[in-house]
Amino acid sequence: MITTPKWVGVAALALVAAITLAGCSTATPSTGSTPGAKPSGAITVYNAQHEELTQAWADEFTKQTGVTVTLRNGDDSELGNQLVQEGNASPADVFLTENSPAMSLVDNAKLFAPVDAATLAQVPEAYRPSSGHWTGIAARSTVFVYNPSMLSESQLPASLLDLADAKWKGRWAASPSGADFQAIVSALLALKGEKATSAWLASMKENATAYKGNSAVMKAVNAGEIPAGVIYHYYWFGDQSGTGENSDNTKLHYFKNSDPGAFVSTSGGGVLKTAKNPVAAQAFLKFITGKTGQTILQTGSSFEYPVASDVAANKALVPLVDLDAPVLDPSKLDSRKVTDLMTAAGLL
């Protein structure tokens, strides 16, 4: 405590105050983590990623740090909208998704704290937004699953846009209500614009058969109910690693050529500004994008792509570099506009 004599004037008091404040100038804002601080306590994660994968991450993180991780599981849109509604009152420390539009939704509401620089350094620029308010943690590729007894290779579409042609009426399927497919449409919107996207969605309404979920689409193609469908790659690889009963009659077609159908969706992770335990929250995000976290992803059952710390994909997968995906800033994918356009087209 600084004791000031009664005769000291206002100017001297100001000088004492300035010296005192200068001594406190290294304080860290409450919205960030303290560099070098050891994580402890507990965090709450709003998890829209695969539950098994995130549980494996949480278990290993707890083993290494002692931090207790509570998961609240849901889907991208559900949890993203919940965070926006909760605002500063949210109990969440961390948000994880399967697709990036939900991350942009929360980021646009200015609810994320900046990601620690050491974490961002682990992730290539292609798999994190320009804002630096969240980061990629995994990725998944768009694919065209087809039944070779109903479609030959020569009949496969060269582009996702080809599915708007009348010859595809009743010959392909998707899950328009799911966040996965809506993320694919957000890429189409970013690459081709609103007019082209609206026209494509109108044709989709005429041509495509709607199912609930990518697994249902793949099962329908496998059963010969419909020749083909648009899904993410990992549904097929996951089924093939097991019994194969829902995929043995199918093959995958990759559009490549920077086509909208070659879109690679970035799964995201971010720390909330209002995190009760920002040190542990930032440490958790650094852990899952680090070598150990990405190796858990590589060797696990989700069959998603690692995107950080130079960890290669599962050997069963087509390497990311060979997918020839379009280059997109994941923070620019507009989920609200996509929902509006799909609703206008009668798909939602």
Rank of each mutant, 00 (worst) to 15 (best):
L156K: 00
L156E: 01
P157D: 09
A158P: 00
L160F: 11
L160V: 10
L161P: 02
G170S: 00
G170H: 00
R171L: 06
A174L: 07
S175F: 10
S175M: 01
P176S: 07
G178L: 08
G178Q: 06
F181E: 01
Q182K: 14
A183R: 12
I184K: 04
V185E: 14
V185S: 11
S186V: 01
S186C: 08
L191C: 08
L191N: 09
K192P: 04
K192M: 05
G193A: 04
E194K: 01
A196M: 12
A196T: 06
T197I: 10
T197Q: 11
W200H: 02
L201V: 03
S203N: 10
S203Y: 07
S203E: 09
M204A: 14
K205C: 05
E206G: 10
E206N: 14
N207D: 13
N207C: 12
N207A: 11
A208L: 04
A210G: 01
A210S: 05
K212N: 13
N214F: 07
N214Y: 08
N214H: 06
A216P: 01
V217E: 04
V217D: 03
K219A: 09
K219V: 06
A220M: 15
V221I: 15
N222F: 08
N222K: 11
I226Q: 11
I226N: 10
P227K: 11
A228I: 15
V230S: 05
V230T: 08
I231S: 04
H233G: 10
H233K: 09
Y234C: 10
Y235P: 06
Y235M: 08
Y235C: 05
Y235A: 03
F237C: 07
S241N: 09
T243Q: 15
E245D: 15
N246A: 13
N246E: 13
D248A: 14
D248K: 15
